[in-house]
Computed example of a mutant assay.
Amino acid sequence: MKLDVAMFEGHHVNRAAADRRCATLTTRRSVKKEYQAAWLVNAVRCVDLTTLAGDDTAGRVKRLCAKARQPIAPHIEAGLGLKPGALTVGAVCVYPTMVPHAVKALEGSNIPVASVATGFPAGLMPLHLRLEEIRWAVAQGAAEIDIVINRELALTGNWQGLHDEITAMRAACGDAHMKAILATGELETLNTVYAASMVAMQAGADFIKTSTGKESVNATLPVSLVMIRALRDYGALTGHPIGFKPAGGMKQAKEALAWQILMKEELGRDWLNPDLFRFGASSMLGDIERQLEHHVTGRYAASSRHALA
């Protein structure tokens, strides 16, 4: 849709209220025993298993994809009553040059390959090169593209410029889903986060995503709450559901529970499915597997007992 500043200008975020809401989110209720196990299994379904390191190799991506196909050990699957191979992650996320390796390793699995693009993580390449990187990744087989916005445009309030860039990126993605990374740790205020979320959705983003994982501050519950409220407002005004992806810094299973509780309370059950909700994480999967093994066996395993992503 065209840029409509009336959808976000004049909307001010009460930071104290947002902090208070998130501080009590997991203290007012909890899930235990088989219910907690069920929530953790659902979290596995929503993980974008990720490697975005400078020393990535074809071998590392192949191992990541093996973990994506078999995210928890077979004896834990059996203990939970899951069919062998029924549980997989939501997607595998890699750099563009690693896309062909991931596509080959995941052949026949129905697990999509996501690629970061547009000069990730800074996003400061010339626009025509950012668009070409998107097209190249899609041509290599990426079904999802995680783009990064130009933070300068958001910080200076150049909403038309930001809208135009994201619209061009959406067109370059073609049939691939586009996740817009806002890099919220660099946007300074929650008001800017809300506005940037709205602009990204107006420009055609299928998902909005908190962070690249490379900022000093990544996904936090208050920032996520503001983005989710933007999702809810946008959906109420347009009737079009948009997905959400927190990413960066999430390492423990209890964080997977917290974000799922936030999604269910703010948006409802539909946003607990991988078509509308993803976690950008890798190390968190290891802790989820340990917690599920404890549920099945009554014992915590050493981290070394679980295959690394």
Rank of each mutant, 00 (worst) to 15 (best):
E289M: 11
R290A: 15
G286L: 11
R299T: 14
N218M: 02
H306C: 05
L155I: 03
A16H: 07
A302H: 15
G108V: 11
W39H: 07
K251F: 14
G85Q: 10
G268A: 06
I261R: 00
G90D: 07
K264W: 13
A58R: 14
G235L: 05
D4M: 03
L276E: 06
V92K: 04
R60H: 01
K214E: 09
A105T: 04
E188T: 13
K245C: 01
T26K: 11
R170E: 08
G79E: 09
V296H: 06
S303F: 08
S197H: 09
E9R: 15
I72F: 06
P274E: 09
A154I: 02
A171T: 12
D48S: 10
M98T: 06
K104E: 14
C65H: 10
D164T: 03
R269C: 09
S211K: 00
P112L: 10
Q36S: 12
Q140N: 02
E266C: 05
M201D: 02
L82F: 07
W136N: 13
A16V: 12
A176Y: 07
T118R: 03
R151F: 07
A247N: 02
A301L: 14
I145A: 06
R15V: 15
L106Y: 06
G85N: 03
H11I: 14
I145C: 10
I72G: 03
P71S: 05
T238C: 10
V13R: 11
I72N: 04
M98C: 01
H128K: 13
M284Q: 04
I228D: 10
L292P: 03
